[in-house]
Design a protein around this nucleic acid. Structure first.
Length: 431
RNA sequence: GCCGGGGUAGCUCAGCGGUAGAGCGCCGGGCUGUUAACCCGGUGGUCGGGGGUUCAAAUCCCCUCCCCGGCGCCA
């Protein structure tokens, strides 16, 4: 008999003889019949073991198949309106591969308990749907870049210095020297454009900031890219195409999973079309004041401000030209207005907030050196980074995408922890 | 780091000075079409930890640990 997957089995002709391998998702014993709903990587399917039609030995084997036991069942498919999905498997043979002790997750458990049992909870149907959406998202992001002439490179994770400030780095012992886990590959990508011009990397980034929000991880997946000869607007165009392409692929390939998660598709359908609006920081301040928000020019946009701005747009939108005081030293100053930088954020709608941060980089040696000094940083720490402006500097721009946040928005999750199988956040290191 | 909420049975919670409770789970029994099956019976506790007040503390006070939500930081 043919080994099948649950999802395919639903579409086979009635009476097909097949075997299924999977895990016991639900089990109901009614008198002389046992209903076992089997779960595999594709979905679920109800199976029936009827004591009148199988040997006593087979029936007893089915009795042993407790929740989450791994089993193999063989039988004949049958249309059955009473079964979920309209098809069930009438079983002739049962084999328990790995029995299961009393499974700790029954339904109704709290957040803390589920996180302590994350290694078991990740097999839930909800999280499985997220993993599938995450896979397609990652695959689409890569595909876009590969098909559009971007070179994938591999920057280091162990680094010597900070990209932005030093307070938020995880320190590790590098044989007696202090080393840090990378919080961004940006500087390394900037170095690599002199060889490959358009480069990207997908790595974990680390931020040792004790965040208490639903949008922060200490260890997160960071897609970064950097392009030579590109101005800020060029980079924004790439961001828009990249995001809308990935959303489009997820809508095409993961509709079932989005529906299972009860995701409202409307917002994604609008985003797949691109054409993200763009406003300047100045315009953002103006819009906020119109809505009665008390904010002065020069103040950073916080969560409350982002929420208000979101009400103006139904797609992701850009905010550009921030005051230089609230942004990093490496962002290029606007030649027309040296009090603002050529930086941009991309904010997702529905309250999901910033998913991309990028900028044109300062490519003039003297200006960059002065900016480093202005920020009270030590130029010696940035020696090699400054060198890049001494040997054939070019205008260049780039950005970083928070992959987990992006997945969180696509899947409509209410917490970033569920966008990744084993989240590192708060004080959680187990499992 | 700051503000707020909370730790009581395996799980979710009620009880808030006077003999520790419910639902679910689990175990046993019944049932040949269940959908988180149902019905009957059974099982279940350092009331997060330490100290104090009191005749008496899960309950009041102090210290401490842990969890959740929000802000800040950002992606």
């Amino acid at each position: 008999m043919q080994l099948e997957k649950t999802k395919r089995a639903l579409r086979l002709p009635e009476g097909s003889e097949i075997c299924l391998r999977g895990w016991v998702y639900r089990k109901r014993e009614i008198g002389k019949k046992i209903f076992i709903v089997i779960r595999d990587s594709e979905g679920i399917l109800q199976t029936v073991i009827d004591s009148g039609r199988v040997s006593e030995e087979t029936f007893n084997e089915a009795l042993k198949a407790s929740i989450e036991a791994s089993i193999e069942v063989c039988g004949r498919t049958a249309r059955e309106p009473r079964a979920p999905g309209g098809v069930e498997l009438r079983v002739s043979k049962v084999k328990v591969w790995g029995p299961s002790e009393d499974f700790p997750i029954k339904g109704g458990e709290g957040v803390d308990y589920l996180l302590d049992n994350r290694h078991l909870w990740i097999r839930s149907r909800k999280l499985t749907a997220v993993w599938r959406i995450r896979h397609t998202t990652l695959s689409a992001l890569r595909e876009y870049l590969i098909n559009n002439g971007w070179w994938e490179v591999s920057p280091p994770i162990l680094t010597q210095a900070a990209v932005e400030g030093g307070a938020t780095l995880f320190k590790v012992d590098f044989f007696g020297k202090e080393a840090y886990l990378s919080q961004s590959a940006q500087f390394y990508l900037e170095a690599l454009i002199y060889s490959l011009e358009r480069v990207w990397s997908l790595t974990t980034s680390f931020r040792a900031e004790r965040s208490r929000t639903r949008r922060h991880l200490y260890e997160y997946w960071h897609l970064e890219l950097e392009e030579a000869w590109a101005e800020m607007r060029d980079s924004m165009k790439v961001a828009e195409e990249l995001i809308s392409y990935a959303i489009s692929r997820v809508l095409d390939e993961r509709l079932e999973e989005l529906e299972f998660l009860k995701r409202d598709i409307e917002s994604l359908e609008r985003a797949r079309k691109g054409n993200f609006p763009s406003i300047t920081y100045d315009e953002a301040i103006e819009l906020l004041r119109k809505k009665g928000v008390d904010i002065k020019w020069g103040e950073d946009l916080g969560a409350d401000e982002e929420r208000v701005l979101t009400t103006y747009f139904e797609t992701p939108f850009f905010v550009t030209h921030f005051p230089k005081k609230i942004k990093s030293f490496y962002m290029k100053l606007d030649p027309q207005r040296p009090d603002v930088v050529l930086g941009f954020d991309l904010l997702a709608p529905e309250g999901y907030g910033e998913i991309i941060g990028g900028s044109q980089r300062e490519d003039r040696y003297e200006v960059l050196l002065n900016r480093i000094k202005e920020e009270g940083l030590d130029p010696k720490e940035y020696k090699w980074y400054l060198d890049l402006r001494r040997y054939g500097s070019v205008p260049h721009s780039g950005f970083g995408l928070g992959v987990d946040r992006f997945v969180m928005w696509i899947a409509g999750l209410d917490h970033i922890r569920d966008s990744i199988p084993f989240p590192r956040f708060r004080d959680r290191l187990y499992p």
